[in-house]
Design a protein around this nucleic acid. Sequence first.
DNA 1: GCAATAGTCAAGTGAATACTTAACTATCTA
DNA 2: TAGATAGTTAAGTATTCACTTGACTATTGC
Lengths: 102, 102
Amino acid sequence: MSDLEQIFRALGDPTRRAMMERLSQGPMSVSKLAEPFEMSLAAVVQHLQILEESGLVRTEKTGRVRSCSIDPRGLDLIDQWVKQRRSTWERRLDKLEDFLSA
Amino acid sequence: MSDLEQIFRALGDPTRRAMMERLSQGPMSVSKLAEPFEMSLAAVVQHLQILEESGLVRTEKTGRVRSCSIDPRGLDLIDQWVKQRRSTWERRLDKLEDFLSA
DNA sequence: GCAATAGTCAAGTGAATACTTAACTATCTA
DNA sequence: TAGATAGTTAAGTATTCACTTGACTATTGC
């Protein structure tokens, strides 16, 4: 599965998007991250794993606490893909415009 | 389901991402769009519906031909979400930097 | 009019997803 | 060192997903 596929799939889930929004405020432990979600800790950890595997989040365990933080390179990949689609689309529009004005 | 959720879910599938890449070259009919994919036309139409419902693609039927094209507003929504996450994240880093240099 | 073309609709299937609970393993603290 | 804390692992389940096939409808060109 490509990076991009893992990333988009990861962000397709509202819980995981909310986790990203929480983590963009700053790093935090798994249980702190889990606080607002009405589901088991195990479920949160499963979501976290998906985010980590996709490259959107980085985690590091120190003692018994795992600290989670955004990995900006994941966001970069999305940005690149969107920009590429848009630039191809706009280049095409420009050509169309040239054609019409000629 | 939120717009953003539909969009990210839609792009989580490689076939649908490939369809977006194809459509960013310019509008085309359903069967033209379907050409490179090794699956039934019905399956392609199902993917197309998901893209349309998410707001990433616009379609219009003229006679027996349905023309499909990118709707750039979908891409805008992704861009906004990514920018927001990144700006929150960077603002936090800036504060940290201020703190460390003080 | 009658094929061929372009797409639509519905029902079915196997695999993936988002959870749950329960039992477990480290690590820290009093 | 005992008990609380922080997280991990595994197994089970209901739902959703990505298809398929087959029957169908609407348009177009000869």
